[in-house]
Amino acid sequence: MAKPIALTRHQGLDALELRAPDGAAATLLLHGAHLVSWKPAGAGEQLYLSPKSAYATGQAIRGGVPVIFPQFAGRGSGTRHGFARTKPWQLVSAEIGKDDAMAVLRLQDDEATRLVWPHRFEAELCVRVAGRSLEIELACENRGEAELDFTAALHTYLGLGRLLDASVRGLSGLHYWDALTGTEERQRVDLLLPEPPLDRIYYGVAQDLTLQEQPAGRPSRRVWVRQQGFADAVVWNPGPEACAQLADMPADGWQQMLCVEAAAIERPVRLAPGETWAGMQTLVLE
């Protein structure tokens, strides 16, 4: 029988500590439905979380997995990266099952959201942790009487020992938008060696991606990144100059992270009244 998970506190905010029977664990905040920790069974922390991040009402958290909804970056007239990551979400369910631990949070429109995005909606985030895998699913239902569209992403900060030891495989042949140069390019090699700064939106991602870390003198690491429902993927690292300008990140923090994000950007999701969409990102530590 499933065992309910009680709310606790993390950095002064309501949180859920998900711990599967095999020891796999994750920490999910109600603030922004923000995942701030993922530790697979028998392994250490896999996400990057800035030690300078603020934990306060109305403020975004730097690191973990921010929920970008209903607008990616400045691609629209609303709040940059949307309002979902700074709003309080409601707890729907949280329980430990036979093989996993899972939680579902919900966000609905209110007067404040309708001022910047005039739609009635219900969004849910489901997080499931078990063994060496983490599943994050974002869903949205149009509860209004008019069509709506949105862009979204799971802005996953993967932790690294050192960026220069990392690579991403699986992007060969894809077209991407380079936000730094304002040009569309084509990925001509399978292995992306991150050279910061890096800010790319890859279109039409149909296969799994792999983050590889091969430090000298230490064991290598691979994290498989799979996505369903999300057509695009973002690969981002601010680099030293931009990172130094971020008040909520250490000046050298760029060396310990790489964002690999499941996203729906090029073609916004369009929902008729009553329609529902869902997208999932799955991370698996090899």
Rank of each mutant, 00 (worst) to 15 (best):
G170I: 07
R188F: 00
D178M: 07
R222M: 07
P197W: 07
G173L: 11
Y176Q: 00
L192C: 06
P196W: 00
I201M: 05
W177L: 08
Y176W: 10
D208W: 02
R218N: 06
P194F: 04
R169E: 14
A179D: 08
P215H: 12
L180H: 09
S220T: 13
Q207R: 15
D178E: 11
R218W: 04
Q207V: 06
R200Y: 12
L191G: 03
R200N: 13
Y203Q: 12
L191H: 06
W224V: 08
L180C: 11
Y202Q: 02
R222H: 12
Q227G: 10
D199K: 02
A231E: 12
L193A: 09
R188H: 02
V189T: 14
W224K: 10
R221S: 12
L174A: 08
R226W: 05
D190L: 08
Q227E: 09
Y203G: 03
V223C: 12
Q207H: 14
P196R: 04
E185K: 13
T210H: 12
E213R: 00
Q207I: 03
R188G: 02
Y176M: 02
R226T: 10
A179I: 02
V205H: 04
L192F: 11
Y176T: 00
L209I: 05
L193G: 01
V205E: 00
V205G: 01
G204E: 14
